[in-house]
Design a protein around this nucleic acid. Structure first.
Length: 435
RNA sequence: GCCCUGGUGGUGUAGGGGCUAUCAUGCGGGCCUGUCGAGCCUGCGACUCGGGUUCAAUUCCCGGCCAGGGCGCCA
């Protein structure tokens, strides 16, 4: 780097520092050679700054070297900041020295200036280049802010961050398929959810915990909203019921939206996404009313069934925005979900929806050991394999509740993208395991 | 896993039983002192794989692989 160090990011080169010498570093986004004047657009993490080289004002060798720069080479430029009404943003850099730090190999596997769009498959194969595009990396700047905001919110509300194992012994929770792996001389699995560990932490006296970590599901789904590895934002809290944790979830969602709006307006602009702050409280639709609503739209769904895709779409049309579906039948919820004592057919459970997309589900949990054993049996699961989990319920387990929020699905609602693959740097789906 | 659609230069596309396979972008060369999707001239670069039908297949048929969309699965 010739002992050069960056002195300014592109976004810091503003008219106020006109006349100052700066060193900028980044990629050659575009080169426009007009013969007697050359414009090089230098792109770094946050934006683009124009390097303007009029032949009469700069050294002849430098001019020739600027002419030879090729797209996506890594360059460093030293020069003087100059205001100009003709320059993008009203400011440009007149170079006096150039270092080409690394050259490019041609042809590029896709076009980072997006003059020709590429398909998602092509883009993911060359993700490093794809991510250089402002409209792509904006999604991840928003995701970063979203996660930061969520951590701040949970810490402010006395939640402790925990880490639970992702290597687990058995496929005991039921429901989803797990990825089997080899654990020395035994078989093990990649964790589908931190659920049982979060609950054990309630017995351990941590009172309020959260975890933001990957979960793995070996389903062969092939849709715009499923992946085999995603980030789950999970909480569990003692001495709370389902309504208490719904309130927390609702506040967290609104705070994250406000925070992204405030701190990521440039990224939202690049994405062309208008992010509205939803009114609270979110509407609560009872499961049985959801059935009626969906039926009235001509979509058949019987009581006791989980939502079909058609039902989700119908609800998305009717409701828009964020809303809860509450009071799910106990029969289609996991064993650890608390039945309503007055009517055990129903449960103290909820899903948070954004239009037609389920982004979170949660519930008050069963904290009574015998009821839990009963529910495990009723769901056809093997009680013995829950021995270590169940033990934590026999020595003073407080009542508790919690939820899991899909980080990528929430991010989809913040950015307006319609393919979950867009929201993961290196997504893992049915076919893709690289890069 | 099922259904539908597709696979043509690096990228994104048009087309089509035999002809120099279209266009944009890109890349190479040339011109150009205010570009900002720069412009103009010029050159380079492609029919997914296997089998079948046919005098002839990139084109039609079958299968594989891969992709896009939809559904299912997804406590």
């Amino acid at each position: 780097m010739n002992n050069w160090r960056r002195t300014k990011y592109s976004r810091e080169v503003k008219p106020e520092i006109s006349g100052e010498e700066v060193t900028v570093m980044g990629w050659a986004h575009e080169i426009r050679d007009l013969g007697g004047i050359i414009f090089v657009l230098l792109r770094d993490r946050d934006g683009i700054i124009q390097i303007t080289a009029p032949s009469k004002k700069i050294d002849k060798d430098l001019f020739e070297n600027l002419r030879k720069i090729r797209k996506e080479s890594v360059i460093a430029v030293k020069g003087i900041v100059q205001n100009s009404p003709k320059a993008p943003g009203g400011v440009e850099v007149i170079p006096h020295s150039l270092a080409v730090l690394n050259e490019y190999k041609q042809p590029l596997p896709l076009d980072p200036t997006e003059k020709v769009r590429a398909e998602i498959d092509t883009r993911l194969d060359s993700r490093f280049l794809d991510l250089r595009k402002p409209a792509v990396n904006a999604i991840f700047k928003i995701k970063s802010r979203m996660l930061h905001s969520i951590r701040l919110f949970l810490e402010e509300n006395e939640f402790l961050e925990i880490n639970t194992p992702k290597l687990v012994a058995s496929a005991t929770e039921g429901g989803t398929e797990l990825f089997p792996i080899t654990y020395f001389e035994r078989e093990a699995f990649l964790g589908q959810s931190p659920q049982l560990y979060k609950q054990i932490m309630m017995s351990a006296g941590f009172d309020r915990v959260y975890e933001i970590a990957p979960i793995f599901r070996a389903e062969e789904h092939d849709t715009l909203r499923h992946l085999n590895e995603v980030i789950s934002i999970d909480i569990e809290a003692s001495y709370m019921n389902h309504e208490d944790v719904m309130d927390i979830l609702e506040k967290l969602v609104v705070q994250a939206i406000k925070d992204v709006r405030k701190n990521c307006s440039a990224q939202l602009d690049v994405l062309g996404h208008e992010l509205e702050i939803p009114a609270t409280p979110f509407e609560r639709i009872r499961y049985e009313d959801m059935i009626d609503l969906v039926n009235s739209e001509g979509v058949s769904l019987d009581y006791g069934e989980d939502m079909s895709r058609a039902a989700e779409k119908a609800m998305g049309e009717i409701m828009g925005g964020y809303y809860f579906i509450i009071d799910w039948p106990s029969s289609i919820k996991p064993f650890y979900v608390m039945p309503d004592e007055k009517n055990p057919e129903k449960s103290f459970s909820f899903d948070l929806m954004y239009r037609d997309l389920e982004i979170s589900s949660g519930a008050m949990r069963v904290h009574k050991h015998d009821l839990l054993v009963d529910r495990i049996k009723k769901q056809g699961l093997n009680v013995d394999s829950f021995e270590k989990y169940l033990a934590s319920f026999e020595y003073g387990m407080p009542p508790h509740a919690g939820w899991g929020l899909g980080a990528e699905r929430f991010n989809m609602s913040l950015t307006g993208v319609n393919n979950i693959r867009e929201t993961v740097l290196f997504p893992r789906d049915r076919r893709r395991l690289t890069p």
